[in-house]
């Protein structure tokens, strides 16, 4: 899987999204940076609650209000900072430049409208044309995601469809305005294994056809290996390791990445029991000082009381861990 060489279309610098409750501040995303090239797939991996989804919502500026706020950083899309845009301008970014596929197909379609209505609603945003043409477009976008007999499907309500079918429709909606970037937030976790594979293949096909960039959020390294060019491993609001899939799989540097890798069952090995990381991820409103993984880390030393800087391992592969410091 060669690293894509397209131009950088999205650049995120030091993004911080905090949640304010009555008594404390939850730092859900605390200073992450990454970039995305045209046509490539970036995986964001981590346990649930590590800030993956909030990162995605921050890119769309849809962090739950009023508790959540983006407090710092920049999100440069084609060089323009999304955080400086007005709400109106932002609306034209959503769906048309960056779109997203949500986790649970069962609940991401509005139960009181039929599929056609929901598809045509987004199509109508850019295509100011009659119902007939919109209907044709809707049929085509369903066909693009391999839905059989799309004309009839458009009349259906969500509760009349299977989970896999719904997720295709959600995909069709996300893709309908031909965005440059699709964020897929664990799009297959709620699906059966066979359907999962179909869906992932579909995403790849579409990417090959349109050249869009995908940010793939998952906790499953197996999916990462299948889908992604590069990976960012997130832990408690930070990106702790970042590199190409090959680098990360062959040479994981952060103990958390290593632990995650070990927890993936490998086909060729006979496994007695699944490896799991000891302890729980920290509560985001009660974070330890210093390295956030230290309490669960087998290598932790006194030095880990201080948060490590980002060390370059090689071109395009970085990690936040003191073990990479020459003085370790």
């Amino acid at each position: 899987m060669a690293t894509a060489q397209g131009e950088v279309i999205l650049e995120v610098n030091d993004l911080r999204t905090y949640f304010y409750t009555r008594t404390s501040v939850v730092k859900a995303v605390d200073g992450i940076s990454f970039n995305l090239r045209q046509g490539e797939t970036l995986g964001i991996v981590g346990e649930s609650g590590c800030g993956k989804t909030i990162t995605a919502l921050s890119l769309l500026r849809l962090v739950p209000k009023p508790a959540g706020r983006i407090v710092g950083g920049e999100i440069l899309l084609h060089g323009e900072d999304l955080l400086q845009k007005s709400e109106d301008e932002m609306r034209r970014v959503r769906g048309q430049k960056i779109s997203m596929i949500l986790q649970d197909p069962q609940t991401s379609l509005n139960p009181v409208f039929n599929i056609g209505n929901q598809l045509m609603e987004s199509l109508a945003l850019t295509h100011k044309e009659g119902r007939k043409n919109l209907f044709q477009r809707a049929v085509e976008s369903l066909r693009d995601v391999n839905v059989a007999a799309p004309e009839r499907r458009l009349e259906d309500f969500p509760h009349q469809m299977s989970g896999g079918m719904k997720q295709r429709v959600v995909g069709a909606i996300a893709m309908s305005l031909e965005p440059d970037i699709i964020i897929a937030d664990e799009p297959t976790t709620a699906l059966d294994v066979t359907i999962q594979l179909q869906y992932l293949r579909l995403l790849k096909d579409i990417q090959a056809r349109t050249g869009l960039a995908i940010i793939f959020i998952t906790h499953d390294f197996g999916v990462v290996a299948r889908m992604c060019d590069r990976v960012a491993v997130m832990y408690a609001g930070h990106i702790v390791e970042h590199g190409s899939v090959r680098d990360l799989f062959n040479d994981p540097q952060h103990p958390y990445t290593q632990a995650l890798m070990d927890s993936v069952p490998k086909l060729e090995e006979k496994v007695d029991r699944l490896y799991s990381i000891e302890g729980q991820p920290p509560l985001l409103w009660d974070l330890p000082e210093g390295c956030l993984f230290a309490p669960r880390c087998p290598h932790a030393r006194d030095k880990c009381q201080e948060y490590p800087p980002t060390f370059d391992i090689k071109e395009g592969h970085t990690a936040d861990c003191w073990r990479l410091d020459p003085s370790w």
Partner: peptide, 26 residues
């Protein structure tokens, strides 16, 4: 707070439409 409202926003539907079309009827 539902996912389909989130999806509507992701689609770029205006806030007014999100509220009156997607939320209100439900």
């Amino acid at each position: 707070d539902t996912e389909y409202v989130k999806l509507a926003r992701i689609k770029g539907v205006s806030e007014r439409r999100v509220i009156w079309k997607h939320c209100f009827r439900n």
